[in-house]
Simulated scan of single mutants.
Amino acid sequence: MSHLAPIPVRLADEITRQLGQLADHLSQLPPSQAAQVIARVLDPDHGVLGGVTHLVATGSVFAKDQAERGALPAEVWLALGRAANELDDIVLDLDEHKDTLHRVGAQPATAAAKRPAPAPLVVRRHR
Rank of each mutant, 00 (worst) to 15 (best):
E96C: 05
A34H: 01
H54F: 13
G47F: 09
E86C: 10
P120L: 12
T16S: 10
A71E: 09
E96F: 12
V76E: 04
A23F: 07
K114T: 11
R125L: 08
R82G: 14
A35Y: 00
Q66W: 06
A67L: 04
L87V: 02
A67H: 12
A74Q: 06
H126Y: 14
A109I: 00
G59Q: 11
D65T: 03
R124E: 07
D99Q: 12
S60V: 00
K98S: 07
E75M: 07
R40E: 08
L121H: 11
V122L: 13
A113N: 09
Q36M: 13
A113D: 15
V123H: 08
S32K: 03
L80P: 05
L80M: 11
Q18A: 10
D88C: 01
R115I: 02
T110L: 10
G59A: 15
A12H: 11
R40W: 12
R17A: 15
Q66N: 14
R115H: 13
Q18E: 10
P31T: 03
R17Y: 14
T58A: 14
P44D: 11
V52W: 14
D88Q: 06
A79T: 06
Q107D: 02
P8K: 13
R17Q: 15
V104K: 01
D65C: 02
A34C: 01
Q21N: 15
Q107R: 09
V91L: 14
G50W: 09
V52F: 14
Q28L: 06
G20W: 07
D89R: 13
T53L: 14
L92D: 09
D45A: 08
V41L: 04
D43I: 04
T100P: 01
I38Q: 04
A74G: 02
L101Q: 02
A109W: 05
Q21I: 06
L94Q: 10
L4G: 03
G59F: 13
T53P: 06
D89W: 15
A5S: 04
I15S: 14
Q33L: 01
D24P: 06
H126S: 13
A111R: 05
V9H: 08
L19I: 09
W77Q: 14
P118E: 14
P8H: 12
Q36D: 06
N85V: 04
P118F: 11
E75L: 09
P8R: 15
T110P: 01
L101P: 01
L72V: 01
A117P: 00
Q28C: 05
N85K: 14
L29N: 00
V56T: 01
A39Y: 00
W77D: 09
A74R: 06
L55P: 00
A35K: 00
A113Q: 15
R103D: 02
A112W: 13
A34Q: 03
G20Q: 07
P116F: 07
H3R: 05
F62D: 07
P118C: 12
H54A: 13
E14Q: 03
L22D: 04
P6N: 13
R40M: 14
A119G: 12
D89F: 15
R125V: 05
G105M: 03
L72N: 10
A35F: 00
P30G: 02
R10Y: 05
E68Y: 13
A39K: 00
K64H: 06
N85S: 12
G81T: 03
P6F: 12
G81N: 09
T53H: 15
Q21F: 13
V91Q: 12
P8N: 08
L49M: 08
H3V: 01
V104Q: 03
